[in-house]
Simulated scan of single mutants.
Amino acid sequence: MTILPSPQQLRYLVALADLGHFGRAAAACAVTQSTLSAGIIALERQLDAAILERGPGKRPVFTPLGLELVRRARAALSALAAVAETAAAARDPLSGPLRLGVIPTIGPFLLPRLMPALRQAFPRLQLWLREDLTERLAEDLAAGRLDLLLLALPALLPEAEVVRVAEDPFIVALPQGHRLAAAPAVPLAALGAERLLLLEDGHCLRDHALAACSLPGAGETFAATSLHTLVQMVAGGLGVTLLPRLAVEGGVLAGANVALRPLETPQGRGLGLAWRARSPRAAEFRNMVPAVAAAIAAPVSAPVESERSLEAPAEGNPPPPRAVPSLSIS
């Protein structure tokens, strides 16, 4: 009879692979380092397989077989968690902990109005938030470290169910007095001649903006780490950028002296929810879609931009935008 690894042994294995350090892995598993090391050694003996390379280095180095066992251990732990989640969902849908991942170009601008809406709609739900780039959030979702993602579309999410909940059009941000600010709308072709300011590599908004403008990834572009930095670069006359309307509504302008114009040919990104296709809570997440869509569509409580900044300018003079109030989570 084959003796199966215990869930605890699999947790030790995955924690060691994730953290790359025996001490940190032991702390994550709430055991001593000697207990974790003994558990890994016992697992090797039990499986009659070398999981780690033995050498002078302090960092654990997994054998090829060890890496495959880590992959299968993740799947096994995810399946075990699904057993408990299925029972919990049947007892009390949309309650208990829910680990939500959100990208930086959505979180700060939507969460201030989304969180209160979700608390009101699902009072027994306990939301734990993680903000990160799409690629890492997708890895965490696949590994079972996150339950649900709120992200921009299109996005590569294998083995995930994705529901589009809203559209988020792009708005052109220009320095005050820029020649394009004199027009009621900006042609896409005109952006090809401008110094286009973008987020650095890794942010999906960069790819979405380049795709909207039909521009290649290389060329005369300048990268920033956040939308707030992009806005300040535009206000300083360094170039132009594309901002999601969600961010404008959420206060990304923060009083910066920039002009806003719509694109002559509307372009944008989608906003969507994603979860593992085989998640036992998939039906719950589908039931959350209307509440999330309503929160995105809800009007903000204060003016979000100059009333005329997206309309035709007055004769001869582009209108100065008003300051945009920023929001905060209470």
Rank of each mutant, 00 (worst) to 15 (best):
A90Y: 09
G192C: 07
A282W: 10
P175H: 11
G316Y: 03
G270S: 03
V304N: 09
H203W: 05
R281N: 09
G217E: 14
G272E: 01
D132V: 08
A42H: 07
L191I: 10
V240D: 04
L146R: 14
L327Y: 15
A218G: 14
S328R: 12
R11N: 02
A259W: 10
L156N: 14
R119Q: 14
L146P: 00
R72F: 14
A291K: 13
R11Q: 08
R206Q: 05
L215P: 07
A183N: 04
A298S: 12
A182K: 08
A42E: 01
F222S: 11
C29T: 14
T63D: 08
P175D: 07
P108K: 04
R145V: 01
S326N: 12
I40R: 04
L205T: 06
K58V: 13
Q120D: 05
V252M: 07
A89D: 02
R269A: 11
M1G: 15
D132M: 08
A88F: 00
R54V: 07
S328N: 12
V172I: 09
A166V: 06
L36Q: 03
T2Y: 06
I41G: 06
G107Y: 06
A17G: 04
P104N: 15
R74S: 00
Q33V: 15
A27S: 15
A259D: 10
S34E: 05
I51F: 02
A90K: 13
S6I: 04
E161T: 15
A294G: 09
S95E: 04
Q8N: 04
P108Y: 03
E264H: 10
R54T: 13
E139D: 14
